[in-house]
Amino acid sequence: MVKRLGQGFKQVYRHGPNDTRYQELILSQWYQGALGQELIEAERGLISRAISGRFGASMVQLDSGFHEILFEQRLFGSGIIVSQLENRAHCPVVCAKPEDLPFEPESLDMLLMHHTLDLCENPYQAVREGALALKPGGLLIVLGFNPLSLWGLRSMIQSRPSGYGVWNSRFLRSGRVADWMQLLNFELERQEKHLFLPPMNRPAWLKNLALGEHVQRKLLPFTGAVYLLVGYKQVFGKIHTSPKRQRRSFMDSSVTANSTIREQPR
């Protein structure tokens, strides 16, 4: 039993799924279930609050299999989904890996990573690609599964080295991802835990356990199944001053328009 838990720990917290394309296909089916729908509904609300009052010309969602836009597309000039699988989403779809985004540097206003780091091969490289693609002041939103939760416990017990599905996703600590973002010059606005539902795919049980969810939220707020990170890209050394506040040079400050220069007697 201890050996199995150790293997589950390595699979979930370090390696993640072996075939990311097949993992996305499995997750696209899981999102249609009762638990998946509860997750999507909660995450829509989180994303809506994160981008409230913001506008931009371009928004990209790095998808994990849901294959639908999770933000209000009317707030942006264009909404694009990046997926490893072809799908019928009601928006432009780009087939690419999150570690190799096909966008020009500093071309995006907002980037949403919807459980991208839970299934990609190199999570840090995916965050780095996002940092390169965002404009100065651009917003990065990261949603991921929290290992310090009941969902993380189930994934550690149920995951298999050659398995797929939500419980074989990579459960990264939000603090680790936050460190990557700060290293890449992001200023964090939010670092939160949400969704205190038990990891059960039965609608009747989910409704009956609402009281337990409320108690867990109050007593153990760090055990939410999903973490939310929101940060904007900082740019150092590009502060532009207005002409009125520009400093004069040493020679200009020594001689003014009203001053006179007298010759000193030799």
Results as ranks from 00 to 15, higher is better:
E189V: 06
A178P: 01
S174R: 05
G165H: 08
E189T: 05
L211R: 07
R202G: 01
S174G: 12
P203T: 12
Q158H: 09
V215H: 05
H194N: 13
L184V: 02
L153M: 07
V166W: 12
M156E: 01
E189I: 08
G165S: 08
D179T: 10
P199E: 09
L188A: 02
M156P: 00
P221H: 01
M200T: 14
L183I: 01
R160G: 00
R173S: 13
R173L: 07
L153P: 00
K218W: 12
L148V: 11
S149T: 04
T223G: 00
P221V: 01
E192D: 10
R176L: 11
L197N: 13
P198V: 08
A204F: 13
L140A: 15
K207P: 00
Q182K: 06
S155M: 07
Q158T: 08
R202T: 14
M156G: 00
V142Y: 01
R176M: 08
M181G: 03
L209G: 02
W205L: 15
V177M: 04
A204C: 06
L140M: 14
S162D: 15
L184I: 00
K218R: 10
L184K: 01
S162V: 05
N168P: 05
P161M: 01
L206Y: 03
L153W: 05
E192V: 00
L197V: 11
L150K: 05
K218N: 04
G165M: 12
H194Y: 14
V215C: 11
I157F: 13
L183D: 09
L206A: 09
R154W: 10
M200Q: 13
V166I: 15
R176I: 05
L172Y: 04
L211M: 03
P198I: 07
P221A: 02
E213T: 11
L148M: 10
G137A: 09
H194K: 12
M200H: 12
F222W: 14
P198W: 09
N208W: 14
N168A: 09
S159K: 01
Q182N: 03
L219M: 15
E213V: 07
H194L: 04
F171A: 03
F145L: 14
N201M: 06
F145K: 12
Y164I: 05
A178T: 02
S169K: 11
R190P: 00
N146I: 06
R160V: 00
L143S: 08
V166L: 12
D179V: 06
G165A: 10
R176E: 14
M181K: 04
F171G: 03
K193L: 04
N168Y: 08
L219I: 15
L206E: 04
S162W: 15
P203K: 10
D179Y: 06
A204L: 15
R170L: 04
S159P: 03
G152R: 06
F145V: 06
